[in-house]
């Protein structure tokens, strides 16, 4: 008696103006319009958001955790990308 299931969508909510959208969970919906409305009813019942994005889960490409060493660790020793790497002489402000 199983039917074909509605596709799975990932939901992203902007909690207030000025912040970026953040992943909050997923839901099922037959089309994008419905996905947005369902997201409104499921994930913003307590005024959690001002804007909603939905995207079909199957369309998301993700990095592979197996590669995470090769992927992310090379950034670890590039401390020169962070401002605290640099010495600023005493007396210099606004930098």
């Amino acid at each position: 008696m199983s039917t074909k299931e509605w596709p799975l969508w990932e939901v992203f909510i902007r909690s207030k103006q000025g912040l970026s959208h953040k992943h909050v969970g997923s839901l099922r919906a037959a089309d994008s319009e419905m996905a947005i409305e369902n997201a409104r009813d499921v994930y913003t019942r307590r005024l959690e958001g001002v804007s909603i994005w939905v995207v079909e889960s199957k369309l998301i490409a993700a990095s592979d955790p197996k590669d995470s060493d090769a992927f992310f660790e090379p950034a670890e020793d590039k401390i020169y990308r962070h401002p605290t790497f640099y010495d600023v002489p005493d007396g210099i402000s606004h930098m």
Binding site: T3, K4, W6, A30, D31, S32, E33, M34
Partner: peptide, 15 residues
């Protein structure tokens, strides 16, 4: 549920 799915199929790309 079947109806909503059939509808989405029919109107793909212009939902």
């Amino acid at each position: 549920r079947e109806a909503a799915l059939a509808f989405a199929e029919k109107r793909k790309n212009k939902i």
